[in-house]
Design a protein around this nucleic acid. Structure first.
Lengths: 210, 210
DNA sequence: GATCTTCTGTAACAATTGTTACTGCAAACC
DNA sequence: GGTTTGCAGTAACAATTGTTACAGAAGATC
């Protein structure tokens, strides 16, 4: 595990902290689709992402959901951070977007390292910063963009995250992420296909051109 | 100023930190309507809010804007925090919602205090936590609520922030905050008036019942 | 191969929100 | 008092998004 940590977090943390993480962290592999965090649950450890991607969703009381953003290598979950520190319930839902490798860190260490390691402090602050920025970008999308542009952005993000221009999702799954209906997504995808931007298959979408 | 700090931040910070804030901070009074932060500008100091309220807005490239949330006594601007630490440009716009008193802290102190004072660290983490939660609540509103409910929420928030059930805004100003058109707001307000929930006057709205 | 399930395509329609245009009113200004 | 300016009310219409319903295609299962 120490080698994975060095490869992925060596540029953030000094060797001594890497060793501490190695000694108290537990390695975890998850398969795509696994639910990591349920809204309303308490969180006992914080994940450092080694590889793969995690999808972070917001869910309202009716079970309606909306994609907030993806976490990747080098990211951590800011919500987890603040929940741990504030001993609060989770406000979000996290699902493995791809198969992923994580290192789970017990929350007691967080406060300790925050005082001890400058690099850890900076990492935590940076994480908050990035999540806040991404939350604002999500707000931009839903406030200022129409569904056709939001769908384009979604396809772009998916390609980037999965490193694959074939998106293995049904229209219904996309509709959930964008909080709209399946019919709307089918309609817009068909339009994109007619314009030559995508090719539609059953259970997957091949993106030809942005 | 030290007394103002003790009254408003005494429960967060130890006396020694209060004194440090007092010695390096500068007191600032602003009138309602003053623009404190422009999107794209660099930030050189961070505000602690003593009283009054600050309105935080998101703005897109076309100049369209959207209200994110209000800051009050005991709050600080998380965006400022992360901009200072990351030496980044502001992603938001801040306008004094009411007359307000602030203490401005030079950013160099922030890193220093983060290492030195546990209470400061907790304050900063808490601020991030609250802003993230509020950003998520803003996402909830625009993603899951219709304009009529968003308007109700807006009126409620305004009453709370201004401690006054008369809201001194034109319909156009509300439309800007909610990123919609004046006609839509007039329409919905008129509906609320017909239902007996508000009374409409020129340049102001009297809220009768939630 | 026959059946069942799930996914996609599409039409028709409803609801919500956005736009344009015009009106009268109130306050401000001269 | 008369004029100008900005605000609010309203109608008519357009655009976008959401809903319902149904048909056919692709896989999965037996």
């Amino acid at each position: 595990m120490i080698q994975e940590l060095r490869d992925n977090y060596g540029k953030f943390f000094e060797e001594k902290l890497l060793e501490e993480i190695n000694s108290v962290g537990t390695f975890k592999e998850v398969s795509a689709g696994i639910e990591l965090i349920k809204p309303g649950s308490y969180i006992k450890s914080m994940p450092l992402i080694i590889n793969g991607a995690i999808k972070i969703l917001r869910e309202d009381q009716d079970g309606d959901e909306l994609l907030l953003y993806f976490l990747e290598r080098g990211d951590t979950c800011a919500m987890t951070l603040s929940c741990c520190l504030g001993h609060q319930k989770s406000e979000i839902k996290a699902i493995a977007e791809t198969d992923a490798k994580l290192v789970m860190i017990p929350i007691e260490k967080m406060e300790e390292w925050t005082a001890k390691y400058k690099s850890w402090r900076n990492f935590v602050f940076d994480s908050y910063h990035h999540r806040l920025i991404e939350a604002f970008e999500t707000i931009d999308s839903i406030a200022f963009m129409n569904m056709d542009d939001r769908l384009l952005k979604y396809l772009k993000d998916k390609i980037k995250i999965n490193k694959n221009n074939i998106i293995n999702n049904t229209h219904q799954q996309i509709a959930y992420d964008l909080h709209t209906s399946r019919v709307v997504i089918s309609r817009l995808l068909k339009k994109l296909e007619n314009e030559g931007n995508v090719k539609l298959h059953r259970n997957s979408i091949e993106v030809i051109h942005i």
